[in-house]
Amino acid sequence: MSGGDAKKLVRSPSGLRMVPEHRAARSPFGLDEPPWVPDKECPRCMQCDTKFDFITRKHHCRRCGKCFCDKCCSKKVPLPRMCFVDPVRQCAECALVSQKETEFYDKQLKVLMNGATFFVTLGTSDKSELMVCRLSNNQRYLILDGDSHYEIEIIQISTVQILTEGFTPGGGNTRAIGMILQYKVPGSEEVTQMKFTAGEDFSSNKKLSAAWLAAMHKATKLLYESRDQ
């Protein structure tokens, strides 16, 4: 892994942000601040259509950049994906999304960093290796340690397929038992595939692996959203 993970405090129109000194060191799950809709282009609230005047002030949602009245944009919610130091003003729709993401940053991110054990199969090989898989502290690498060692850049991951068991046509509980990961090696267009399979030895290990896979599933969704921004 490369160094250069130092951060700096910057002030934007939306608030204080603690960001990496170099853009290349940013989290792959992060989002850029949106451009604000210019004041002259929003004479009315973009939610309830209330007209702005000296009494009814306009506010910009820090997540979507749209213009709202105080009633429609009153919630201040943490927004770690944009590196804000304090909770920031968001419209009701964006606040709901940000609140749901809080679970990932408060709980699931720690699960990914703590790691879990899987049998890992590379490509079309018929041999697997027992490895501890974890997310790096800077969130930029998936680290695999066993007899071999791999560091996969999160931004190079192209697809993640979570493997489950227990599904029936009529519905029912499912359990994550592994995943298939495809990624590109930097400097190459070749796609490499890895298969992760949870062990069947101890129930505690299976629960830990299932929790790690669930967290990875959520992380993948955030990764795709960041790319599509």
Rank of each mutant, 00 (worst) to 15 (best):
M1D: 08
M1Y: 03
G3L: 12
G4D: 11
D5R: 13
A6F: 00
L9V: 09
V10H: 09
V10F: 08
L16D: 12
P20T: 10
H22G: 00
R23K: 14
R23A: 15
A24E: 13
R26P: 00
R26L: 00
S27C: 05
P28Q: 00
P28R: 01
V37P: 08
P38A: 12
C42N: 15
C45F: 02
Q47W: 08
C48L: 04
D49R: 13
D53A: 09
I55Q: 09
I55A: 12
K58A: 13
K58N: 12
H59V: 03
H59Y: 14
H60L: 05
C61F: 09
C61P: 02
R63S: 13
D70I: 04
K71S: 02
C72P: 01
C72G: 00
S74K: 03
S74R: 01
P78I: 02
L79A: 08
R81V: 11
C83T: 10
C83L: 07
V85S: 03
V85E: 09
P87V: 04
P87M: 04
A92N: 07
C94Y: 08
A95W: 03
A95M: 03
V97L: 10
V97K: 05
Q99N: 12
Q99W: 10
E101R: 10
T102P: 06
F104V: 14
F104S: 15
Y105P: 07
Y105N: 07
D106E: 11
K107E: 02
Q108G: 03
K110Y: 01
V111N: 02
M113A: 05
A116V: 06
T117L: 07
F118L: 09
L122T: 12
G123A: 10
S125G: 08
D126F: 11
M131Y: 03
R134A: 10
R134V: 05
L135H: 07
L135I: 05
S136T: 05
N138A: 00
L142W: 11
I143G: 00
I143R: 04
L144A: 04
L144R: 02
S148V: 13
S148R: 15
H149V: 14
I152T: 02
E153D: 15
S158W: 09
Q161W: 12
I162W: 15
I162L: 13
L163Y: 03
E165A: 09
F167S: 14
T168W: 13
P169M: 05
G172Y: 03
G172V: 04
N173V: 15
N173T: 15
T174C: 04
T174R: 10
G178Q: 01
M179I: 05
I180T: 08
I180Y: 00
I180E: 10
I180G: 02
Q182F: 10
Q182H: 11
Y183R: 00
V185D: 15
P186C: 05
P186K: 02
G187I: 05
E189W: 05
E189A: 08
E189Q: 09
T192R: 04
Q193R: 15
K195W: 14
G199I: 11
E200V: 13
F202D: 13
K206W: 12
L208V: 12
L208A: 13
S209T: 04
S209Q: 06
S209D: 01
A210Y: 01
A210M: 01
A211H: 09
W212K: 01
L213I: 05
A214D: 10
A214L: 02
M216H: 11
K218L: 09
K218W: 14
K218F: 14
A219C: 00
K221R: 11
L222F: 09
L223S: 07
D228G: 04
D228N: 10
Q229L: 10
Q229V: 07
